[in-house]
């Protein structure tokens, strides 16, 4: 896979930040790294995403949502000429209870792409604790090839 150009990365960041509403905006995601090896994204702590009264334990579902979102980003980075993209299936293992108020870090990459399908994998940990992953996930995506390109893929196709 060729190195991701600065221009492409800026375009991706711009598109990501331009999504005026919705869950991704609510998660306040910050793209930290984009390279041929994958993407790294930071999600700040948000008490809305907790299950306990003290608001220190994240719900698993938000980690699943985070993986799904960041897989989408990893696909934009890895795949050229995709007009639509939809999550086919998603598997997530919750490796330990997500007790912390630290930021959450996600690393994800598309490890295989065919004409129709992309396969992604990713890991989540609390900032500073990469050796203690809290979740790991894999997913597959149905791709539609076309000329619409990057922006079209985000605005038209993703059915999730």
């Amino acid at each position: 896979m060729p190195e991701v150009t600065k221009q492409k990365m800026e375009r991706i960041a711009q598109m990501w930040n331009a999504r005026g509403s919705g869950l991704i905006t609510h998660m306040a995601l910050d793209i930290e790294e984009v390279s041929s090896a994958g993407v790294r994204v930071r999600m700040p702590f948000n008490p809305d995403f907790c299950v306990d009264k003290d608001q220190t334990l994240l719900h698993g579902g938000i980690l699943t949502a985070l993986l799904d979102s960041v897989f989408g980003l990893a696909n934009f980075v890895a795949i050229d000429g995709v007009s639509t993209m939809a999550t086919l299936d998603l598997r997530v293992d919750y490796l330990r209870p997500a007790y912390s108020r630290a930021d959450v870090i996600v690393r994800a990459h598309c490890f295989r792409q065919t004409r129709h399908i992309a396969f992604d994998a990713g890991s989540i940990w609390f900032d500073g604790h990469e050796d203690a992953e809290i979740a790991r996930g894999t997913a597959s995506f149905a791709l539609t090839r076309g000329e619409t390109g990057l922006f079209g893929a985000t605005t038209e196709g993703k059915a999730s």
Partner: peptide, 17 residues
């Protein structure tokens, strides 16, 4: 809850949650 702001579709992660 939106994943796709143009078509106003639910985010897959919200459905899973």
């Amino acid at each position: 809850h939106i994943g796709n702001p143009v078509l106003e579709l639910y985010h897959g992660g919200i459905i899973a949650s």
